[in-house]
């Protein structure tokens, strides 16, 4: 009977914006492919481009990322049925983490530090692949651990 909400901020914020949940998942598939090629070819250019994509997703919102625009223009019109929605904040958090890894990887490329490049690209690739293949929620796994570690 009784569901008590002590959590207006976290889950049922009226201003929480909902987006089509399939958009970020589609973006994760392209991100996985781009990062895989970048890892194999050690391409600073590809990491740079992916960094820009992460930046738009992280700071303007995942629904504004170039991959989301491709999804809206070419993929969404072909889909039918109910639109699954999700809060915009979890995928935006994931884009921010991706952005940090891309910055690290690009620094590695610029500083001629191939190990740094490979490790940072690998972490971003792993997160994107897990999201694409298993609907992995990075914010769910990471955010509370960060909060636990940083707030004493």
């Amino acid at each position: 009977m009784a569901t008590i909400n002590r959590n207006l901020e976290a889950t049922e914020n009226k201003s929480a914006r909902l987006i089509d949940a399939r958009g970020p998942r589609f973006g994760a598939v392209i991100t996985t492919a781009v990062l895989a090629v970048a890892l194999v070819t050690h391409s600073a250019v590809l990491i740079g481009l992916q960094l820009l994509v992460f930046a738009t997703g992280a700071f303007l919102g995942p629904q504004k990322s170039p991959y989301a625009l491709i999804y809206k223009k070419f993929v969404k019109p072909r889909l039918s049925g109910d639109v699954p929605t999700e809060d915009v904040r979890p995928p935006q958090f994931a884009q921010k983490i991706g952005f940090l890894f891309a910055v690290t990887a690009l620094s590695g490329a610029i500083l001629s530090a191939p190990v740094l490049f490979a490790v940072a690209t690998s972490f971003a690739l792993a997160a994107a692949f897990l999201n694409a293949a298993f609907n992995f929620c990075l914010g769910c796994e990471l955010y509370l651990l960060i909060a636990r570690a940083t707030n004493r």
Binding site: T3, N7, E9, A10, T11, E12, A21, E86, D87, R89, P90, P91, F93, C137, G139, C140, Y143, L144, A147
Partner: peptide, 12 residues
Amino acid sequence: SSAFCSPCRATR
């Protein structure tokens, strides 16, 4: 729950 959690809404 937390703010950056997609399945929290569905769980609720």
